[in-house]
Computed example of a mutant assay.
Amino acid sequence: MTMAAAIEGRTAEARAWSKPGRIAGVDVVHDLAAAEASWRSLESPKRSCTPYQRFDFLAAWQRQVGERKGLQPFIVIAHDSEFRPLMLLPLARKAARGVRCASFMGGKHATFNMALWDRDFATSATPADLEALISAISARSEADLLALHQQPLRWQDMQNPLALLPHQPSVNDCPLLTIEPGAAPATLISNSFRRRLKGKERKLQPLPGYRYHVATTDADVTRLLDWFFRVKPKRMAEQKLPNVFAEPGVEDFIRAACMAPLATGGRAIDIHALECDDEVIAIFAGVADSHRFSMMFNTYTMSASARYSPGLILMRDIIDHFAGKDYRAFDLGIGSDEYKRLFCKDDEPIFDSFIPLSPRGRLAAGAMSGINRAKRAVKQNAALFEIAQRLRSMFR
């Protein structure tokens, strides 16, 4: 290429980046308050993000959990020439073994991770746009690696632009129930399964005040969470599982997010409950937008009512509730638990990206990628997975 052609090419590229609606600059912000205005502007209906990336959800997580883990906000904001935000990556950074790694805020409490996008930009984004974004982050020399886990290939009707970058399948897929417009209940949950649940529910219906409801008042939220944090540790001990809700800051995060009201209605985390006058029978909590409900955590009573599968009855009620509100999808979170297959027959593919920003990050990216591929191979092989489960139980 001649010098004149090279100059002409760079000039054309500069013009493209200077146009409204195309990336003109990239900022990295280390303070939640400084990012809040741009962040909330990308949460409007004309933008695209999952409920797990709302400011109220992740700000509560970062302040209660992230800070205790030594994680610093690493919020990437790309804007056009008129300084309108085009995308925001809500990341947190931590140094380990000499590598500064930035990953999505939310940790294991977020089923899906995704940038917040201006839809017009997202639907027209090209590989060159994404490469330029990564180059701009790399040029700041503030991180060695982006480790971006559990990203959906699509959200609602939009392809995830980060899928244009090199990526690989996540360790697990996500069981999914797709709800077609106007679908009859029998098409969502089989008639035979519904009859089984109705038979079990008849044992609960005589209980005084038996009801399904969504917590709407602060008093209800507090009461249900107080019960959850008493009962869940007992249920996990029964299953010989570690109590993840006892980790520093986790209870405070959940309480803060369940209390945070959204401008569109509901809360950052909604609680659905099955109750009677004498006790809480079961709860499921999750996040919702106008399209999808995603389950986060649940538990059920220690009383004799537990024998009638109240958790399954509550899941049926939740599915019917959101189908009646014209939602299009429902998921029970990532994982292969058998009960999830009773409701969610499909799998939603999700992906990970390990993007080096420095030579040191390149070595770490290769190692992380290999470990995740090995984990997925084990999960996909029933014999290997059973061996892994036995070993885990022995060491636990």
Rank of each mutant, 00 (worst) to 15 (best):
H30D: 12
F193H: 14
D56P: 02
R40N: 01
S124Y: 07
D56S: 14
P161M: 07
G199N: 15
S393P: 01
I334S: 04
F351I: 12
E13W: 08
D120C: 07
A35Q: 01
A125W: 01
S369R: 13
A383S: 12
P51D: 00
R223G: 02
A37N: 11
K232G: 01
F284P: 00
R93F: 03
S358H: 13
F104Q: 05
T299R: 07
F228H: 08
R84H: 12
T264S: 13
Y210T: 10
W39N: 07
E247C: 04
I7H: 10
E279M: 11
S358R: 11
N298H: 10
C174V: 15
M295V: 07
V250S: 07
I134A: 01
G70Q: 09
D120S: 15
Q156N: 10
P206D: 11
Y327D: 00
A16C: 01
R15K: 15
H272M: 08
A215Y: 00
A37C: 04
I254T: 03
P175E: 09
G324I: 09
L197F: 02
P73Y: 04
M296I: 13
T123H: 09
R194E: 04
P185I: 01
D331M: 14
L176Y: 05
K375V: 00
H321N: 06
F57M: 09
F293P: 00
L204N: 08
K203L: 10
R292Q: 05
A92C: 14
R47Q: 13
H291Q: 11
R267H: 15
A24F: 08
S190N: 09
N172P: 00
M1K: 08
L116F: 04
A374E: 03
G182M: 02
P359N: 11
R196E: 13
P242K: 04
A139D: 12
L207D: 10
L162T: 10
M295H: 15
A306I: 09
L384H: 11
A288V: 08
F297R: 02
T187S: 15
R396M: 09
T111W: 02
A12R: 15
G66V: 04
P175Y: 00
A285F: 11
M315K: 07
D120K: 13
N372K: 11
F55M: 10
S369Y: 01
D331W: 13
G199C: 06
F74L: 13
S138L: 00
Q151L: 11
E201W: 02
I387Q: 10
T299A: 12
P310E: 06
A110Y: 03
D317C: 09
G66F: 04
G335T: 01
R140F: 05
D220T: 05
G335N: 06
E238I: 00
L241C: 06
A260G: 05
H272Y: 14
A285I: 04
S38C: 14
Q380L: 11
A59C: 13
P127Q: 12
N243K: 10
M368E: 06
A323I: 05
Q156K: 14
Y52V: 01
R40A: 10
